[in-house]
């Protein structure tokens, strides 16, 4: 029989009653600082600002900039770098590794997109009625 696990995470109340599907991640499991990321099922990639990348030790010097994803390119003038990155979520001890689009702008929101994140799970459910996320793996 296949064993399956799940966790549910309430949407985050950040402003008024605007509840957002979001989760906290840590780039180092021993760190006490976590970054709150919006979960975006319509986003192909996960994005973070380069300044956070530098802070956690990502070395961008040898990285060639890539074309910004279409949605960013029209809105913010910036350079983007696609770099393999690992981070941790609170309910798993193993890290999640994926390609992150690091954006050279502090105006970009930390976003977790589909590639490399959603596909780590059997199901990611946005439960709008109960305002919660359900991850099954």
């Amino acid at each position: 029989m296949l064993s399956s696990k799940e966790i549910s995470i309430p949407y985050n109340k950040l402003l008024d009653n605007n509840l957002r599907p979001s989760i906290s991640i840590k780039f180092d499991p021993s760190d006490t600082q976590s970054v709150l990321c919006l979960l975006d099922s319509g986003a192909d990639f996960s994005t973070f600002p380069v300044s956070i990348g530098k802070k956690i030790g990502v070395d961008f010097r040898d990285e060639d900039p890539i074309n910004p994803p279409s949605q960013i390119s029209g809105k913010i003038k910036c350079k983007c770098y696609k770099v393999a990155t690992s981070f941790y979520v609170s309910w798993q001890t193993e890290s999640i590794s994926l390609y992150v689009i690091w954006v050279n702008s502090d105006k970009v929101y930390p976003v977790l997109g589909r590639r490399g994140f959603f596909d780590k799970f059997k199901e990611v459910v946005f439960c709008e009625e109960e305002k919660k996320l359900i991850f099954r793996w």
């Binding site: 402003l15 957002r20 976590s34 970054v35 709150l36 929101y109």
Partner: peptide, 8 residues
């Protein structure tokens, strides 16, 4: 424990 976020 501290949470860092950009206020949407």
């Amino acid at each position: 424990e501290t949470t860092i976020l950009r206020v949407p």
